[in-house]
């Protein structure tokens, strides 16, 4: 690929690398927080790199995210930090990015290992162990329940790796404590959808004691459903992400616990890994970032 004009931006200096951050929906507070964290980091390190932040309209609009990656290649970025909207379908374009010499770092949603292998691609993942985080949230919940209690899981978009991981983590904790998982359904990461699904679950399973939600948006939806079913005292809810909208619910106990994977730092961890690799001219490896359980 060639450019009609030189790519180097004179005002910003010649050696400063351009890093592109490609996110999922910036309408989702979690990704907004991530982007804000990255922007703050760039402001503090303005001499070290230039940052271009982009997100897509709709979490399932893969074609738009592919187009964004292509755009970033065209803009001549040196590194691309991406939260892929799908664990498989972004691999084709990321291969294109790597072939054009762009350093690619995967954050948030881990790319499917088998598909990467099939495509002959190695992309480092910088992020938390979602399965372990969800398991620890599940363990906090298990202490409030009794063995044999009925619980249900609200997973995210089923194609997403971190949804699968969180679901597995919840299942690990529930099985270890002897709970009965009566249903696993997708709330597609969304509040509205989760609320509808949760309402259905509460009706179908009158004895339900807990809803384990793979993100906080869905926990908010589940809480609304529990409230309108007047079962706040009976049904415990846990989430994942620790978004600020959940704070009041954690405070009054409508939601028991969530996991904080330091959302504002997730993109920053990826950017730091990218900058380090660019500077040292090394191939970065996977980095595991911390997850904390939050109960208030």
């Amino acid at each position: 690929m060639s450019s009609c004009r030189p790519v180097t931006d004179v005002q910003s200096g010649y050696d400063k690398p351009k890093v592109a951050l490609v996110m999922k929906s910036l309408a989702n507070e979690f990704f907004q927080t991530m982007a804000e964290g990255a922007k703050k980091h760039q402001t503090a390190h303005a001499a070290d790199y230039e940052l271009i932040v982009n997100g897509i309209k709709n979490e399932t609009d893969l074609a738009e995210q592919v187009a964004l990656v292509d755009q970033m290649i065209a803009q001549g970025v040196q590194a691309l930090v991406i939260a892929p909207a799908d664990s498989k379908a972004l691999i084709t374009v990321l291969k294109r990015a790597k072939d054009s010499g762009v350093l690619v770092i995967n954050i948030d949603n881990k790319l499917d290992a088998d598909t990467l292998k099939q495509a002959g691609l190695q992309i480092p993942f910088v992020g938390p162990d979602n399965r372990d985080g969800a398991k620890r949230v599940g363990e906090v919940l298990a202490k409030k329940l009794q063995s044999g209690d009925e619980v249900a899981i609200l997973e995210g978009v089923t194609t997403a790796f971190n949804s699968q991981q969180r679901k597995s983590g919840f299942e690990d904790a529930m099985r270890a404590a002897g709970m009965k998982i009566v249903s696993v359904q997708s709330g597609e990461w969304e509040m509205e959808k989760a609320s509808t699904v949760a309402a259905g679950l509460l009706t179908a399973n009158p004895g339900l004691k807990a809803l384990l939600c793979a993100n906080d948006n869905m926990a908010l939806g589940a809480a609304a459903a529990v409230q309108s079913a007047q079962k706040t005292a009976q049904v415990q809810i846990v989430g994942f992400d620790n978004i600020s909208a959940l704070k009041p619910l954690l405070a009054d106990g409508r939601v028991l616990a969530t996991a904080d994977q330091h959302g504002d730092q997730l993109a920053v961890f990826g950017i730091e890994a990218a900058l380090k690799a660019l500077k040292d001219k090394t191939v970065p490896s996977d980095v595991q970032t911390p997850v904390d359980v939050v109960t208030k």
Binding site: M1, S3, C4, P6, V7, A74, Q75
Partner: peptide
């Protein structure tokens, strides 16, 4: 300046 390019 990157807009007028074959890549775009």
């Amino acid at each position: 300046d990157t807009f007028w390019s074959f890549a775009t």
